[in-house]
Structure formats: structure tokens, C-alpha cells
Simulated assay, not measured.
Amino acid sequence: MNILIADSGSTKCEWCLLYDGKKKKVDTQGISPYFLDAAGIGRVINQELVPALKKWEVDVVYYYGTGCKDPDNQKIVKKAIRGIFRSAKVNVTHDLMGAAVALCGHEKGVACILGTGSNSCYFDGKKIVKNSPGLGYVLGDEGSGAYLGKKVLQYYLYNTFDEELRYKFDAKYTTNSKEILAAVYKQPLPNRYLASFTLFLVENRGHYMVENIIEDGLNDFFFNHLCKYRESWKLPIHFVGGVAYGFRDVVKDLCSTYEFELGSILQKPMDGLIRFHQNQK
């Protein structure tokens, strides 16, 4: 049985075909049912995925994607996929379920996403039982790339950075307050713009101000979300996403501070999804 797995955000979608004990990975542009209708999604799949799959048949599709918690959006994506892979069984669900399955498999645990945005849930091995409310990058997204990047810009615009960090920031970005405010308040996708400044933290680890931003930002996620689950003190807590993986030393220290059991930390969900569905075959 050939299994096609998809892990999609709004900018990039990772696909993996499992066939004859082998793996074929393909990247396409992101698929969001908020921005593409069924016909548009079908065009992306036909143009960017199907040619790479060549002669292989697809028996089952497991699609985990942004925006697919909404039943109407699920129908849009399922219609598009069925239009391409007509003989395949198609399963569509949201990206948080993908993270939970990738991290926990069939076991109980708390699954966390720390990437451009942030999210978390208690997963009972079959379904998501609890989900701490996500308020988006304006009111929430604690611990995310957007949240940390916003802190970087605050430190810069408030002139909180010391001379060393301000010099490094100016040398790297050659921007100013007018451009920054325009990008945040007038340009599309400001959350991604904010998250791009997380790289400045990565490149300046060891400076006390940088460490404070990272530790405070991740601690806000632990305090506002993980502490709301009673299961956090009983079950392993797993993480996926570029922020969690890039700052895994801080994640590990915070788990120790809060007396949580740290589970796995993955950069991307796909490897965990592959393991899960290989065991399903």
C-alpha cells in the first residue's frame, strides 16, 4: 500500500510518499484553504507534486494542514485531493493533530508547536482532548518566532539594546523605525516578518540581553499554556518547530524548572509522521 503524507503550512507543504519500503519527499508551495479554493489547490498539486511522483499509485492520503480544523476548509482540501488521486482514500485534518501524532504516536502526552506561531494540546493517544486557546500573534503566540521577533524589535526601537547589539542589528538589517512600523502595520503577513528576527537571537547567543529575550519568551509559553494542563506534571511534554529545536537547551532547562518530563523535540513534524504511518501499514 502506497501512503502519501502531507504537512502543510500557508507558505510550504512537505509531502512524502511511502512505497515499497522507500520514501520519496517533495516540497510544494503551501496550501491554505483560506487563500485557495479546491481548483487552486488542485493546480498546485498537479503542477508541483504529481510530476515528481511519476508512475507511483497512491492508495491513501493523510493530509495535515493549516486551516483544516474548520470542517468547511477540510471539505475544500479533500475535494481537491480526491480530484487528483481518484482511487485513494483521503484523510484531512489540521496541523495541530499532525504535531500530536508526530510527537506522541499512540501514546498520551502534551504536544507543543513552537514555530512562527505557537500552539499546544493534550493528546490522549487517539484525539486532542484539550487545547489551550490560541490568540494569534497580536494577543498571544507566546514562545513563537513572531513573539520573540517582536521582542527583538522592541529592544531595538526602545533603544534598550546596548551599543554592541545595536551595532550588530544595524549592520545586519540596515533598516529604521519607519520601515519596521510599515512592515508590521501596513504590509501583509506581519507575523512572518516578526519571526524573521529570531535569527538575530540565534546569531547572538551568549549575550545576556539575547538570553533574556529567549528565556522570557519561552517561559511565557510555559506559564500561560503548559501550566494550564494538569497533565503537564503527569505526562511527557513534546515539542516541534524551528524555535523549539533551535532553542532546545532553553526548553530543556525550563522543563527542569517546572518539573516537567521532557519528551522529544523535532524540528519538523514529517519524520514523526513517517514513523507513525509506517507502523500503520
Results as ranks from 00 to 15, higher is better:
Ile45Gln: 06
Leu36Asp: 09
Ile237Val: 15
Ala52Val: 13
Val92Lys: 08
Asn73Met: 07
Phe276Ile: 00
Lys79Trp: 02
Val251Trp: 09
Lys24Cys: 12
Tyr63Pro: 09
Glu142Leu: 07
Ile128Glu: 01
Cys104Phe: 01
Ala6Ile: 03
Cys13Tyr: 06
Thr93Asn: 08
Ala100Ser: 11
Cys121Glu: 00
Ser118Lys: 07
Lys130Ser: 02
Gly140Gln: 08
Asn176Thr: 03
His207Val: 10
Phe223Ile: 15
Lys127Asn: 10
Leu49Phe: 01
Ile128Ser: 03
Leu199Val: 15
Asn46Val: 00
Ala100Cys: 04
Pro236Asn: 05
Leu114Trp: 10
Lys268Tyr: 14
Asp271Thr: 13
Arg192Glu: 05
Val110Asp: 01
Leu49Pro: 04
Lys168Pro: 12
Asp72Trp: 02
Leu201Lys: 05
Thr66Trp: 09
Asp141Tyr: 10
Asn191Trp: 02
Lys75Val: 11
Lys127Cys: 04
Gly217Asp: 08
Ile76Cys: 11
Phe239Glu: 12
Arg205Glu: 10
Gln74Ala: 11
Lys127Thr: 13
Lys108Phe: 02
Leu189Ile: 10
Phe85Pro: 00
Trp233Gly: 04
Lys75Gly: 08
Gly206Pro: 13
Cys255Ile: 05
Arg205Ala: 08
Val243Arg: 13
Lys69Asn: 10
Gly105Lys: 03
Lys23Asp: 04
Arg166Phe: 06
Asn46Met: 10
Trp15Phe: 13
Val26Gly: 06
Gly109Trp: 00
Glu14Pro: 01
Lys151Met: 14
